[in-house]
Each structure stands twice: as structure tokens, then as C-alpha cells.
Nucleic acid binder design. Structure first.
Length: 584
RNA sequence: CGGGGCGUAGCACAGCCUGGUAGUGCGCUCGGUUUGGGACCGAGAGGUCGUUGGUUCGAAUCCAAUCGCCCCGACCA
């Protein structure tokens, strides 16, 4: 490819509305242009990267027996109503009507469509297992698209679905995908962490996210350096030191606390209690039902955990008037002591964080403004309907597995794999006969990778002052040839010859034949991030060209005749280093 | 959906407060000089000032509504 004739609209200045590095560089280096919020056009450079990522994904999916499909983006509402997700997906689903007035949707994921195929055409255990996948456009009407390609409303996803007779089969399919994902991200040059995750609206029993550590990410990951424990804060747990609850009154004791509104206030109030000896009582609306959510005073609620624990789809904090209507007091004096279905008919249920289990001598609100209760024995005095892990783990706490010190970092979710179980096969009636003639629901898994997210994450990982520095495996071109002066015939002819040789060797080569000054070309090459640059300049007279490595910014002279060999050797080393996985 | 910011040439911005019909840098075109890290000189092209309505003799500027984009939060497979 000749630069003079290839569309690379680089900008000399940073775009004003891009915050994160990948967004800023994708726009500035001429990879993408925004059409509207969360919707981007991929320009030729970006499309080349996208296709390389896709190719790696395809090879690894095929390697585990995946069969590539291509499913529609337009779905009838009917199948989403069958699975129950027509309502669950809410405003995040793009909806439309056809000319007959039938409700339709743009696909945000494809469990329903794949399951509908499976239920019609798979009847016997003999046809299983199956691994089906596609690489296709997904539509999600995000409330807040942001950060360039990191959070968008239209994007390419590789989504795969496994179908097995039983859970043992699912375990194997899940593991196959886990291994394939490790190979995919490694080959794409990404450093990643596989973490335990919440399954959210996908449902199912277990899920693992593949996270790329970067501050541009929106997820918080809890990580133990010592044993390798890693989990999304939406899922993570930690060990807490046991507190000594001895002493205090023998029974509950109400006392006046004028002016006390917060946990903090009560810690300094005479006769009050430290935060870890208080019960924080939150009022939440879980799918239109009022619930009390209890946590230790110094702990913070993680709403995803609350959703998982309660099974609720819509979760929000109650408004002040809803709180006083339900409990007869305002925030600051709330408590769950003595709250039952008869005493407080508005309260649907009480969900408590495990850290409160068996605690005694606790202090909490009295459901009477300006009054609290002390001497609370949680097991004795509070009728808890459900115990669950509800709090957000914080950095510095002890690892659940080994007691090591946990750290918390930000990350981008590049992939997510789920053990779905029979959620969709049950609701949509996808069943097979087992060898002994029993009819059982197919056991499913689903597995997704955001292709443009992989690209963005790579940029977040590999960029510097001068621009992008692509991992060679997904770079739009392996090498750029820079002709320092296009008026110098010797330089032009030499570079043309090397260009032909490199192309013949099967490399992706960009020949910068533009009539620009050398500085412009060097800066553009650095900006768009091509891993290797060969410069044809002064030393061509001595039969030499200069090889510049983008990642290290190191230069060396090469005999012109050895350029092809040198580039090939370096690429092979760089790419094979990444394709080695732990089980190879 | 709540809070904040911003819409003026392809990009980055000034002009708005104090109304008089639009400017700077980069980029672009042409000519010339240059040629190893974003050259220089000269001559040009390019703008419904987001949109609609209002005030006014006159609106980029004042008022109102509306649309859009970015950031924070809520939300999010």
C-alpha cells in the first residue's frame, strides 16, 4: 500500500472532545470518525486492525471446534418475549416496528436466536456438543456512551454459544473457551486478568471476565498478588477481622440521639458506637417492592451484588418520602430491629450482608427520628430474610483465599464467558433425548469478545507521547518504508525495490511515498503506530537503510539486501512470543 | 434521568460581556525556495456562526425554545 494513495487523515492537534488515550489517538491518527454519540465509522486503518483481531479470534474459535454462523441483527420481539428478556433489557434495547406494526428489536446479544435454531434442529444427545459462534454487529442503546470505542452503541462482537447434554459437558465447553480466550488475548498482545464476575441479566451459574488493566476502564477489579485471586468488585469477597462483641447491655436499649443523621455522627456521639459496631439500614426499591438492606456501618453497598442476591432487575435507593412511608422515620434513624411483615407491611424483605452475621451489641436506628437502639443481637433481634455478600471489597482487605493483601485496579472488560445452564433452553423449550430416552433441557454457555474493545485496550496499553505502538500481531501494517526525499531518484528506486520484496514475502507494508518532509513522515509513522519503520535516507549511498522499532524507539543500520530477512525475523519473534500459551 | 461544560471554516480556537453583517493558527489549492523529527515566502479557496422563533433600523453577539456533542453521576451482559 502506498501512503500517497491510502486514506489516513491524521490530525496535527488532539481532538478536543476525546479524554482517554485510545479515543484521542484513534481519532488523531486517522482510524475512526464519530457519526453520533457512541457510533463510529472505522476508517481503513482501523478496519485492517479489526480484521486482524477477528482473524485471530476465528482461528482460536475454530481450533476448539467452533462453527461460524452469521445471524440477523433484526429480531422479532416474539423470541425476546419467550426468554423473558423483552422487558428485562429495558431502554438498552433498540426497538422498532415494521410496516405491519410488529415489534422488532436490534440484536444486543444472540442467546434467543441461537436457542431458537437449536430447539428446532437439535433433538438428540447424539448431536451434542455443539459450539456455535458468529462475528457480528451488536446494538445496545447505552445510557451513556463514552471513551471512544470503549463504550459504544454499535460494535462488533464475537459471540459464541455452547450446547451440551449435561453440566459436565458445559464444564468442558466453558474450559475450552477459557483456554481459547487466553490464547486470543495473548496473541493480540494484551496483558489481561481472568476474574470472577457477576452474570447480571445474562443469568446462569458462573461467569468469568477477561479484564485489561487500565485506568480508562470502568470496572474495578480486586486482585491478590500472593495467590492470584481476582474478581470484579461486583463479585469479590474478602476476609474481615473478627470483632470482639462482648460487653454492653443484655437486651436492646433505645436512647435519644438528637441531631445524629449519619454513621459518622453516631461515632462521635456520647454513648454512640464506632462504625464497625453499627448497622447501616438502607431502603431500596427492588422491582417495585420495598426492601431493607443491612450492612456494617463502615461498609458500602455494591448494587450489582444486591441485584444478584435479590434477583431484582430494577434496583434503586428509595426516595425520602418512600422511606418515611415504609418505616415511619427518616434516613439517619432507620433500623430493622423488630421489623416484620405485620409491623411494617410495606417492607417486602430484609436482606443483610454476611459481615453482620452473629454480631452482637450493635447499634442501629430506632425507626423513630432522633433515636437509636444499642445492644442489638443481630440473630436474636432482626428477622433477616436473606443473607448475602452485599458490600464492596476495598483495597487493603485480606484475601478470602490466602489472607494476602488485596489491591483494587481499574480495567476494561474485553471478554466475558458465562455458564448459562438451562435458563434459555427452559424458557424457550430446547430439549434433547438422552441415551436412556429421557427428555432434558440443553445445557448452554455463552461467550463474548468485544472486537473494538480489544483494539482500544491495546492502545491504552501501548501508547506514548508520539502516538500508538501496536502489538505486531494486530498492527494495520507490519512495516512502513519512509522515503526521506521523494525527489531523490536513488531513494525512490531503492525503497520501491524493498517494498516489492517485502510484499512478496507476505508482509503488510506501507510505503510512505508522499512528497512531505521527513519530519512529517516520521511523526505520522509514530502516530499511527506501525511496529517497524525502514528509513531510506543518507545512508542509502552506502547500501544501508535504517530500521526503527516503534516500541523501543531504537534505531539500527541494516544492509539494504537484508531488510526483508531482518523484518521477518523480528516479526516472527514478536508474534510467536505472543502465540505461546501456557498449555503449548 | 440529575449535575456541569460546549456548539463560529476540515482541526484547535478568538470574537459574544458592551449588537453594526466574522477572525487567528494548523490543514487545503497554486507558484517559488527548501528537504533526516510536524520548513519558509507570496497568492488564494473555504463559514446557513447547531436549529427555530423573538427583540431591534440592524443579531455570531440580547431573549426564549429546541437539537446535538463531551465530562461527572445514575444506569449498563
Amino acid at each position: 500500500m502506498r501512503w500517497s494513495n491510502f486514506f489516513i487523515p491524521t490530525l496535527r492537534e488532539d481532538p478536543a472532545d476525546a479524554e482517554v488515550a485510545s479515543h484521542r489517538l484513534l481519532v488523531r491518527a486517522g482510524y475512526i470518525r464519530q457519526l453520533t454519540a457512541g457510533v463510529y465509522s472505522l476508517l481503513p486503518l482501523a478496519q485492517r486492525v479489526r480484521l486482524k483481531v477477528i482473524q485471530i479470534i476465528r482461528e482460536e474459535m475454530n481450533r476448539i471446534g467452533g462453527q461460524e454462523f452469521l445471524l440477523p441483527a433484526i429480531h422479532p420481539a416474539e423470541i425476546w418475549k419467550e426468554s423473558g428478556r423483552w422487558d428485562v433489557m429495558g431502554d438498552n434495547m433498540f426497538r422498532l416496528r415494521d410496516r405491519k406494526g410488529t415489534d422488532m428489536a436490534l440484536g444486543m446479544t444472540h442467546e434467543e436466536v441461537f436457542t431458537s435454531i437449536a430447539r428446532n434442529s437439535i433433538n438428540s444427545y447424539r448431536q451434542l456438543p455443539q459450539v456455535w459462534y458468529q462475528i457480528q454487529t451488536k446494538f445496545r442503546d447505552e445510557a451513556r456512551p463514552k471513551s471512544g470505542l470503549l463504550r459504544v452503541r454499535e460494535f462488533t462482537m464475537k459471540d459464541a454459544y455452547s450446547f451440551d447434554v449435561d453440566f459436565e459437558g458445559l464444564d468442558k465447553s466453558f474450559q475450552d473457551h477459557y483456554d481459547a480466550y487466553c490464547r486470543i488475548f495473548t496473541r493480540c498482545g494484551l496483558k489481561y486478568t481472568a476474574v470472577e464476575a457477576s452474570s447480571g441479566a445474562m443469568g446462569g451459574t458462573k461467569s468469568t471476565e477477561f479484564m485489561v488493566r487500565t485506568n480508562a476502564g470502568e470496572d474495578n477489579i480486586v486482585f491478590c498478588e500472593k495467590c492470584g485471586y481476582a474478581a470484579n468488585v461486583e463479585k469479590a469477597t474478602s476476609q474481615l477481622a473478627t470483632l470482639d462483641d462482648r460487653g454492653g447491655p443484655t437486651g436492646v436499649e433505645e436512647f435519644p440521639t438528637p441531631g445524629v443523621r449519619t454513621i459518622e455522627d453516631l461515632t462521635s456521639f456520647p454513648g454512640g458506637a464506632s462504625a464497625d459496631r453499627q448497622i447501616k439500614t438502607l431502603v431500596y426499591i427492588l422491582d417495585d417492592n420495598v426492601a431493607l438492606v443491612l450492612l456494617r456501618g463502615d461498609h458500602e453497598l455494591n448494587e450489582t451484588k444486591l441485584m444478584d442476591a435479590s434477583g431484582a432487575i430494577n434496583v434503586r435507593a428509595a426516595r425520602p418520602e418512600e422511606i418515611s412511608e415504609a418505616l415511619g422515620a427518616s434516613a439517619g434513624s432507620l433500623g430493622a430491629v423488630g421489623v416484620t411483615a405485620t409491623s411494617h407491611p410495606k417492607i417486602g424483605r430484609i436482606i443483610a450482608d454476611e459481615a453482620l452475621s452473629a454480631r452482637r451489641n450493635m447499634t442501629t436506628g430506632a425507626n423513630k427520628d432522633d433515636h437509636h437502639i444499642r445492644g442489638v443481637d443481630v440473630d436474636r433481634d432482626i428477622k433477616v430474610d436473606k443473607w448475602a455478600s452485599l458490600r464492596s471489597v476495598k483495597a487493603g482487605e485480606a484475601c478470602v483465599n490466602c489472607g494476602g493483601v488485596l489491591e483494587v485496579f481499574r480495567a476494561v472488560e474485553a471478554g466475558h464467558i458465562f455458564k448459562l445452564g438451562t435458563k434459555y433452553s427452559d424458557s424457550m423449550g430446547a430439549k434433547v433425548l438422552t441415551p436412556d430416552g429421557q427428555e432434558v433441557p440443553i445445557v448452554m454457555g455463552s461467550y463474548g469478545i468485544g472486537v473494538e474493545r480489544v483494539m482500544s485496550a491495546a492502545i491504552e496499553l501501548y501508547n506514548d507521547e508520539a502516538g500508538i505502538s501496536w502489538p505486531p500481531s494486530i498492527a494495520p501494517f507490519h512495516v512502513v518504508l519512509t522515503v526521506v526525499n521523494t525527489k531523490d531518484q536513488q531513494l525512490v528506486e531503492t525503497s520501491e525495490r524493498v517494498y516489492e520484496d517485502l510484499c512478496r514475502a507476505g508482509l503488510d507494508v506501507l510505503l510512505d511515498d508522499r512528497d512531505e518532509r521527513a519530519g512529517v513522515k516520521f511523526n505520522d509513522a509514530d502516530l499511527i503506530g506501525i511496529p517497524y519503520r525502514v528509513t531510506f535516507g543518507k545512508k542509502v549511498k552506502e547500501g544501508k537503510a535504517e530500521l526503527f522499532t516503534r516500541a523501543t524507539r531504537a534505531s539500527e543500520d541494516l544492509e539494504i539486501g537484508s531488510v526483508v530477512h531482518a523484518i521477518r525475523a523480528r516479526l516472527e519473534e514478536a508474534i510467536s512470543k505472543n502465540s505461546r500459551s501456557k498449555d503449548d
